[in-house]
Computed example of a mutant assay.
Amino acid sequence: MISFTPSFTQAWWLLSIAIFFEICGTVCMRLSDGFSRFTPSVLIFVFYAFSFALNTFVVRVLGLSIVYAVWSGVGTVITAAIGIWYFKEPVTALKLASIGLVVIGVLGLHASSNAAS
């Protein structure tokens, strides 16, 4: 078994890389066209495996609530931006407001974890 525990700074870098892989996996979901395209279909699982593996090390240092909030929140916001920009998905006031609420939620969880420590 691997017994690696990252430092605080390393944990944030690993979380950033995990977010990158999560975004890549989610974009591949769209590119797979319902699992009808082989390469993006396989890459979904590869990218998510890397992302989850990195998160496993990160939660040792940063804690589950903050890791999952940042991972899913930042991934959601960036993925939504990619959907709007690259896949030409419609932009609505409700979509933008919802993205803003995700950002506020992640910042709130982060602030509450800092206050508790």
Score class of each variant (00 low, 15 high):
V67M: 09
L15S: 08
Y68W: 08
A18S: 15
G73Y: 01
S51C: 03
G73K: 04
L31Q: 07
A97S: 14
F20K: 01
I78S: 00
S65Y: 05
F47Y: 09
I44W: 06
F35I: 09
R37E: 01
V42E: 05
V27W: 03
S65V: 09
T39K: 11
F21Y: 14
W12E: 11
V58W: 04
F87L: 07
F8V: 11
L94W: 14
G83K: 04
A53H: 07
F52Y: 14
E89W: 03
T26P: 13
V91R: 02
V46W: 03
R37M: 05
T9H: 15
L94M: 15
A80Y: 10
Y48R: 04
V70L: 10
M29L: 15
W13Y: 15
Y48F: 13
F35A: 10
V74G: 04
A69M: 05
I19F: 13
T9W: 15
V74I: 13
S65W: 07
L96C: 12
I19K: 08
V67G: 00
G25R: 04
L14H: 02
P40Q: 00
I84K: 01
V61A: 07
D33W: 10
F87V: 08
F35L: 13
D33H: 14
S36M: 03
P90H: 00
W85E: 01
I19T: 15
A11F: 09
A49L: 06
A49N: 06
T39D: 00
T76D: 04
S32E: 10
I17G: 05
T39W: 14
L31P: 13
G83H: 07
F52I: 14
G25L: 02
Y86T: 04
I78N: 05
L31R: 15
V77P: 06
G75A: 04
L43Q: 10
I23F: 03
A97R: 12
A81H: 06
N55F: 02
L94S: 15
V46M: 00
P90W: 00
F87G: 07
R30H: 06
V70F: 09
I66A: 01
G34H: 04
S98A: 15
F8G: 07
F8W: 14
